[in-house]
């Protein structure tokens, strides 16, 4: 067992984990952040995407011990006081989800994308979401949502890595 301290969605945690524990299992099973999901065994689908110190990572491809001393933001840390994050709102308004399984990862990666490139073209959005698979929507409305968020979202500062 190894002792780790991690800030998750603004709250400090100190826990014992086995070194082989993947960050996504730590988040889901020990911290209870089941909003972050696991969609594959090959690091391809991106549904487990979270922010580690403000940049996107696939939490199934990071060990919990590697995140020791760092800060994680999950999909559950985005909404504030019952109000959706602008990216969540844009997904909602643009019908950017059907079954919703890819959505937590899509939203986290879309926020990272706009952090890197605040006014992307449609092509750039597609490129930036290369590591996230959706089996339902055909991506069209996801791209629309990200472009809408880029156009209209007010800048919201202060959330751990969750700024837009």
């Amino acid at each position: 067992m190894a002792r780790i301290s991690i800030k998750v969605d603004g709250v400090e945690y100190a826990d014992d984990v086995e070194p082989r524990t993947l960050l996504v299992y730590y988040l889901r099973d020990q911290v209870g952040k089941t909003g972050t999901v696991i969609g594959c065994d090959t690091s391809n689908c991106g549904s487990c995407t979270v922010h580690l110190d403000g940049t996107s990572v696939k939490s199934c491809t990071v060990l919990a011990v590697q995140a020791d001393g760092h800060e994680v933001t999950t999909i559950e840390g985005l909404a504030k006081d019952g109000e959706l994050h602008p990216m969540q709102q844009a997904f909602h308004e643009n019908h950017a989800l059907q079954c919703g399984f890819c959505t937590p990862g899509m939203v986290m990666q879309s926020i990272d994308l706009l952090r890197d490139n605040p006014s992307p073209t449609g092509e750039e959005v597609r490129h930036g979401l290369e590591g996230n698979l959706c089996r339902c929507t055909g991506y069209q409305n996801i791209v629309k949502a990200v472009l809408a968020a880029a156009e209209s979202a007010p800048v919201r500062v202060g959330t751990a890595g969750g700024t837009l």
Binding site: S43, G46, T49, L52, T55, S56, V57, K58, T61, V62, Q109, D112, L113, D116, G128, E130, G131, N132
Partner: peptide, 9 residues
Amino acid sequence: VADPQVRHR
């Protein structure tokens, strides 16, 4: 190489 998440790590 890969995708943005993989390139971050």
